[in-house]
Simulated scan of single mutants.
Amino acid sequence: MTQQVEPGPTARLGRAVGASGAVAGVVLVLPPGEPESARGPSALAHASVRPLTRGLAGAGGAEGLVAHVVRYRGRGWNGDAARLAADAQWAVTEAVRRYGDVPVCLAGVGMGGRAALRAAGATAVNSVVAQAPWLPEGTEDPVRQLAGRRVLIVHGTDDERADPEMSFRLAARAKKSNRDVCRFEVHSDGHGMRQHRAEVRALSVDFVLGSLFDRPYARPLADAFAAPPPLGLRMPLATGFGRG
């Protein structure tokens, strides 16, 4: 069940990047956060997702893609308050207010990945990218809101901050009722997937443009969607993906 959207008096969308003309699709980029915090939003976290935002906007701007970094009210998830997810839902509502009836992709990193998955039930959302989503042990996040959405999860196998097994379990539960779920593993890489940053970004770009504009997916993505679990949920991300 989609949680109630809180009014977002201090959440906002960052500067629009991408399409200069008519907008045909929106990607909302959700930065990392912290499990518990009363502090304001993190400038460092916002800066960390700017390369992804620019990469998406640069690849899709000619087709009418606009990208925004979501600026949270604060940096803490804060238990049942799930504040980052609430801010993500507010951001979808704001995107619809600005741009009208266009498809929206939520692209989150770390705890922003959890927020993207949780907020996917908004009507305008057609797709979700979750990079190294933080999903705490002992919890079972809902997956019902992912029905009818295309979902890509990417996770480093050596992630010591966000357990990759938790994202596999969530993907497996979601795949039972939604065939459009896939998950890639970045072998021997950690939480930031820095060793394979270019490949992760290229995979995310291919997925977002394919999902928002019905482009054909690259062969590895198409194969991952088509493969039965667990194969399509443990797809290795090949070194050099997206290079030529």
Rank of each mutant, 00 (worst) to 15 (best):
A119V: 09
V200I: 08
G121Y: 14
T93A: 14
M193I: 15
A86T: 13
R194N: 12
Q131M: 10
M193W: 07
A174P: 08
D80Y: 06
R219I: 01
P9W: 06
M111A: 03
T157L: 04
R75I: 14
G76F: 10
L56K: 07
I153F: 09
V70T: 04
E199G: 11
P230A: 02
V26L: 06
P236T: 09
D206S: 13
D206E: 09
V151R: 02
A107G: 05
A224N: 00
E185R: 12
D101G: 02
G21E: 09
P142D: 14
R39W: 11
A120L: 06
I153C: 14
L65I: 06
G8A: 15
A132E: 03
R197I: 13
A47H: 12
L106N: 05
A115P: 03
L28M: 07
A86W: 04
G232D: 05
G74V: 04
A218E: 15
G64Y: 08
V17P: 00
G55T: 05
M111R: 07
R161G: 08
F207P: 11
A171S: 15
A202L: 07
P136G: 01
W134A: 13
P220V: 06
N126Q: 10
L65C: 03
D180A: 15
W134E: 06
L152I: 10
G244E: 13
A115H: 03
A43F: 03
L52Q: 06
A85P: 07
V17C: 00
P35M: 03
E63M: 15
G61P: 02
Y217A: 12
R173Y: 01
T239P: 02
M111T: 10
D87K: 02
P41L: 06
C105M: 11
